[in-house]
Simulated scan of single mutants.
Amino acid sequence: MKITGDLQLMKKINKYLVLDTIRHHYPISRADISVKTGLNKTTVSSLVTELIESHFVTEIGLGESSGGRKPMMLLFNQRAGYAIGVDLGVNYILAMVTDLGGTVVKEKRIEMTDWSVETVTEKLKKCIHSLIKKTPSSPYGIIGIGVGVPGLVDDQGNVLSAPNLGWTDVPLQEMLEREFDLPIAIDNEANVGALGEKEFGAGRSVSNMIYLSVGIGIGAGIILNDALYRGVSGFSGEVGHMTLAQDGPLCGCGSRGCWETFASEKALIHQAKSLQLVDEKIQVAEAIDKINLNTLLSLAKRGHRPVIDLFASTGHWLGVGITNLVNVFNPELIVIGNRMSLASEWIADSICETLNSHSLSFHRQKMNVVYAKLGMNSSAAGAASIAINRFFSAMKALSD
């Protein structure tokens, strides 16, 4: 029995290996799969047949010959199923349906003004139900839901602390599992943002990168040697709370002088309210207490000097924190995402000036700073990718 069990397990693992190879290298021939996996051609052919019967793989015709018969090329069927990815922001919910290759097919955004657990979770459930109804039919349907949350999340999907939402000990995964008969994955939004940019965006070709989610707060998803670094307790990446000034502004975490009190969207807006934003040339309809990032972006585009200077100051403080990260981790790439990336035109120069002045020269030489290729979709796409990868990884444990 043990030998039979071992053989069945090995077959599952090999099938997963073949499918994973097709997913990441299609179009591809059976012969090339054999070379990449080290499996013999007979085993590959048998497993490919099963994957075709399971709707994960299709044949798309003959490819170019390398000297012998033209090979039949295989394609991964991205539309065999769909995933839902959610970016649960401080003032918005961004949810999307992607196919199994990460292509967005449906998207929905909801603006939020009430951050109570009851209100947010109710709107989140309605949003997901709405997307499920609009998802195209497929052999496997919705295979899972991933959610990125701006806070500390444990391995059971509980939101332990989300200061900018005012949440503590919220069993979000359990709440969604009761609502949806689907696998649910909850993670920190900067972590899923890093995975989104790594898998589908600016970080596809690098092994060591840091994704900075700069919105109401600041968080980081850290990719080391192609894997997400989580730390011993799973809570790595809370870079917004590294101290830049011991006697600095009070932070929502209870400490003073945290990075996000100088360089986040929240800090930017707080400082903007002290500026005179209405003058003879530029009329701003919003009252001072309703100033938001969009207001400031609009003013900067119109050449409003105090706002442009304010963005430059924010860029400087972002550069200070990024310098610390560069000196510690020596990454190949820093990706700036979330809302502050919309201000790249006015923060980029001051970030680079600060980095060039203060980061260690050897660390800086091979490091680039870019802005999220996926734009505001990084975290939602990354959340969907977690659901997709868990779905395929589970194949190794499923019975035939």
Score class of each variant (00 low, 15 high):
His358Pro: 04
Ile13Thr: 01
Leu100Met: 12
Ile288Ala: 02
His270Glu: 10
Tyr229Lys: 00
Lys198Ser: 06
Ala312Phe: 10
Ala381Ile: 13
Arg23Met: 15
Lys281Cys: 00
Val370Cys: 12
Met96Thr: 01
Arg69Cys: 06
Val18Lys: 11
Gln8Phe: 08
Leu51Arg: 15
Gln283Glu: 10
Val149Gly: 06
Glu199Met: 09
Gly68Phe: 10
Ile336Asp: 07
Val170Thr: 11
Val278Phe: 07
Val105His: 06
Gly375Lys: 01
Ser255Leu: 09
Lys106Ile: 03
Ile128Thr: 12
His129Val: 02
Ile132Leu: 04
Val159Met: 02
Gly63Glu: 14
Asp400His: 15
Glu177Tyr: 08
His358Arg: 15
Glu179Phe: 09
Leu299Asp: 03
Ser29Glu: 10
Ile288Trp: 00
Tyr82Pro: 12
Ala267Glu: 00
Tyr371Leu: 07
Leu374Thr: 13
His25Lys: 13
His55Glu: 15
Glu265Met: 10
Leu297Ser: 08
Lys12Ile: 11
Leu360Asn: 15
Met72Pro: 03
Met340Val: 07
Ile336Tyr: 03
Glu177Ser: 13
Leu172Ser: 03
Phe392Pro: 09
Thr323Met: 08
Phe391Leu: 10
Leu19Val: 10
Gly337Arg: 00
Val370Lys: 12
Pro27Asn: 14
Thr42Asn: 13
Ala162Arg: 00
Gly203Cys: 00
Val214Ile: 12
Thr103Cys: 09
Val44Cys: 14
Leu176Gln: 10
Leu268Gln: 01
Tyr26Cys: 13
Val326Arg: 01
His55Arg: 15
Glu179Ile: 08
Lys70Gly: 05
Ala343Met: 06
Leu160Asp: 13
Ser116Gln: 08
Lys41Thr: 11
Met72Ser: 14
Leu293Gly: 10
Ile186Asp: 03
Cys127Phe: 01
Glu111His: 04
Leu75Glu: 15
Phe235Asp: 02
Tyr140Arg: 12
Gly102Asp: 11
Asn164Trp: 04
Asp226His: 05
Ser34Gly: 15
Ala380Asp: 15
Gly201Arg: 04
Gly382Met: 05
Leu195Arg: 01
Gln365Met: 15
Leu228Ser: 02
Phe329Asp: 05
Met1Gly: 05
Val307Leu: 11
Thr314Arg: 00
Ser274Arg: 05
Ala272Asn: 06
Val328Ile: 12
Arg30Pro: 00
Leu333Met: 04
Val328Ala: 04
Ala190Ser: 12
Glu199Ile: 08
Cys253Arg: 07
Gly85Pro: 10
Ile322His: 03
Gly166Tyr: 07
Pro163Tyr: 01
Gly101Asn: 02
Ser137Ala: 11
Ile322Ser: 02
Val239Arg: 09
Arg302Leu: 15
Ala381Pro: 02
Thr21Cys: 14
Phe56Arg: 14
Pro150Gly: 00
Ile184Trp: 09
Ala312Arg: 13
Ala31Asn: 13
